[in-house]
Write a protein that binds this DNA or RNA. Structure first.
Lengths: 224, 224
DNA sequence: TTCAGAATGAGAATCTTATGCATGGGCCTG
DNA sequence: CAGGCCCATGCATAAGATTCTCATTCTGAA
């Protein structure tokens, strides 16, 4: 979930914007002056800053320069009032990533937010977590309690399948079909073996599974 | 010096734009249809793509989807004719990084180009380093522990591709597609062979790779 | 002729799955 | 409700299959 900080001279004005962002699944924070903005960026570490011009006693360009001087390197979208090309250019050159002229089309703003995050945030959708386990699909790495755990191709596929079908009782047949692509089901305990391996790798106590539960007479059920 | 590819259905129209870019210190290339554009992106590896809509027989959105499908991950600015918010949004959502409505303010375009390059180009200089290895793209020279190491064209391209996609698990197919330009995937071990060569040239201990890691059953992952 | 790139194949490393035995839950019977 | 039986599951092991490495050979272009 991405954090977005809105800088606006009167907080109420950013209320509408903030609501919209929350509706879209972002976490929004507010600052009403440059100083608190800088503080909060350091404290909260948002992925994006939206600056609603004009600010109190400081120009947008100065704000950008301060951000740069503070070495925060945070992606920034400016919402400005001026159609004047010169203003836009100055802001873009001093560090802003985008500039939109008010009145803002909310859907366009959203699209631009996403476009910027796509470039600057490392594929958030590709990370999944459960318990102490973190799966990074882009790197194809699984970590448990911060340390990398090696998983074989088969284990990896099975793990992803469990995550996709969390909290559902799955028969061995279903699993064999989806993960292995088998259409007929030999009397095998391959699934058991692999579940066992996943337990050993990811369950704090493999003898008392909390995530990879067995459903006696049926198969398995995975809990996040 | 950054390379920019302009995609425009009639090349002459991009002449003005191209001249302007060259004046500003960019290297500009032109393509007049999507197919050659994709080819050239692979061949030239530009840092930015400017798409001047409309194209011949293909919509902007389709173009973006193709770029995405080809896994090229190239920053894209769209120059469009439509003021319609819906068009902008669609393009931004499908992968475009910015959308400008014609007529274009050249100075604003420039500022936006720079803003995007600032975020996407990792190394403003042409030198990249990892481990004991230093790559000088301007001179096309690779050095390891200070001494020059000869690399063949193929090895060089592969090396750069790894650097651009550091820390991501890459399938052989992806690599063959991006580095070799293959669209169908013969059952070949060409990639392995070349990775092997890179290991021998750049890994302190080729038997225990620290940079060119294999992801069993998938392909390879490069670590800086 | 030379060199880079692509294909090949043998051997090594790694992964998959069958097997056997141990264990434990579920169900029947008394 | 206890005891015992049966079957499902856990789990270690090893054989078998796959995938990877890398030296070598082949091919085509300069």
């Amino acid at each position: 979930m991405h954090k977005i900080l809105i800088l606006n001279r009167n907080e109420s004005a950013s209320d509408f914007l903030g609501k919209m962002l929350e509706r879209e699944g972002f976490l929004q924070f507010v600052a009403s002056n440059p100083e608190t903005a800088l503080e909060r960026i350091r404290a909260i570490q948002p992925q994006l800053l939206i600056v609603d011009l004009p600010l109190e006693g400081i120009s947008g360009v100065e704000m950008c320069l301060q951000l740069r001087a503070a070495n925060l390197n945070i992606p920034t979208i400016i919402l400005g009032e001026s159609q004047d090309e010169m203003d836009k250019i100055l802001l873009l050159e001093t560090g802003a990533d985008d500039y939109l002229v008010k009145p803002i089309g909310t859907r366009e703003l959203l699209a631009r937010i996403r476009a910027i995050l796509r470039r600057t945030v490392r594929n958030p959708g590709l990370r999944i977590r459960f318990g102490d386990v973190e799966i990074d699909r882009e790197r194809r790495i699984v970590a448990c309690k911060g340390g990398e755990v090696k998983v074989t191709p088969c284990e990896y596929k099975l793990l992803l399948f469990f995550l996709q079908n969390a909290d559902r009782a799955l028969t061995r047949d279903t699993i064999l079909n989806s993960v292995w692509g088998y259409t007929d089901y030999p009397n095998t305990r391959t699934v058991d073996t692999h579940v066992n391996k996943l337990r050993n790798k990811f369950e704090p106590d493999p003898a008392a599974p909390r995530h990879f539960l067995t459903v006696h007479g049926v198969g398995y059920r995975f809990l996040m």
